[in-house]
């Protein structure tokens, strides 16, 4: 039984000029199809990776799966519930939101610079009313910081006092604070240095095992994806051109585009002696 099912996901963007300008210049409406009938499913506790170059629509898919963007067509089911069903009452929507959280690309823009780390991590706990007792909340924040490898003493610091890797850990702690079942990782390490990237990727793996998390992992970097994914979907211009178990796709790619991506990816393992 799959935990997430995306069915025929499609998203159009209207890039046209305003109506009045179109009447004057005689231009037609311009519709961009960012995502075109993409279907995939993810099993509970597994990692599904979407790889693609810029403009392939991978971030748009992330936004639709996270519930922030309505698909033009198609549906996203999480644990059997339709995320974009207009009939959801506020309570169910809240419950859906709580199940799916996100870790972002930029360690700088993803944390509010005016908030203390403790407050950043506490916010989801308060918003979802997970704990109401102040002492229990404090204990939980300390526990979360510990889980991502930071110290409970860091609660009173501001984000700018941390390095890029540590900020990404704070971002992960915030995502965990909602007690989600799924985390969407949108290029979580592409702004980090190699040695720090390894720490963050390992942390994500440990957390997945510990909490049976389901990951939708988005990246342009095949080497990073190869260390994380069970299944890989290759996106090109909004379409899913190939989908396969990671071990098969990396050794025996079928589609030409996948072959091209694999041969272009700079790989440290390629060095000849």
């Amino acid at each position: 039984m799959s935990y997430v099912t995306a069915h025929q996901l499609t998203r159009h963007f209207d890039l046209s000029d305003p109506w009045i300008v179109r009447q004057i210049t005689g231009c037609q409406k311009q519709i961009l199809t960012a995502v075109d009938q993409v279907s995939f499913s993810i099993k509970k506790g597994e990692t599904y990776a979407l790889v693609g170059e810029s403009g392939s629509g991978k971030s748009t898919i992330a936004q639709m799966v996270s519930g922030l963007l309505r698909p033009s067509m198609g549906s996203v089911h999480i644990d059997g519930h339709d995320f974009h069903d207009g009939g959801l009452d506020a309570m169910s929507l809240r419950r859906m939101r709580q199940r799916v959280q996100m870790v972002f690309q930029s360690p700088y823009a993803s944390l509010n610079p005016r908030w203390k780390v403790g407050d950043i991590i506490l916010e989801p706990i308060k918003s979802f009313h997970l704990l109401d007792d102040t002492q229990a909340q404090q204990k939980r924040v300390a526990e979360l910081l510990d889980q991502v490898g930071l110290s409970a003493r860091d609660v009173n610091k501001y984000p700018h006092e941390f390095s890029g890797g540590q900020r990404q850990r704070i971002s992960i702690a915030r995502a965990l604070a909602s007690q989600p079942e799924m985390i969407i990782c949108d290029e979580p390490t592409s702004a980090l240095d190699v040695s720090v990237q390894a720490q963050v990727l390992n942390l994500l793996k440990e957390l997945q095992r510990e909490f049976l998390l389901t990951y939708l992992f988005i990246s342009h970097d095949l080497a990073v994806i190869s260390t994380m994914a069970n299944t890989i979907g290759v996106l090109k211009n909004g379409q899913l051109v190939e989908e396969e178990a990671a071990s098969k796709l990396l050794t025996n790619p079928k589609h030409d585009y996948t072959k091209m991506l694999l041969s272009s990816a700079p790989d440290i393992g390629s060095i000849k002696i």
């Binding site: 990237q197 390894a198 970097d221 990073v224 190869s226 260390t227 994380m228 994914a229 990671a246 071990s247």
Partner: peptide, 12 residues
């Protein structure tokens, strides 16, 4: 070198 991810069938 060891921390750099490699494209490898079973590195996950």
């Amino acid at each position: 070198v060891a921390a750099t991810p490699r494209i490898d069938a079973d590195s996950y």
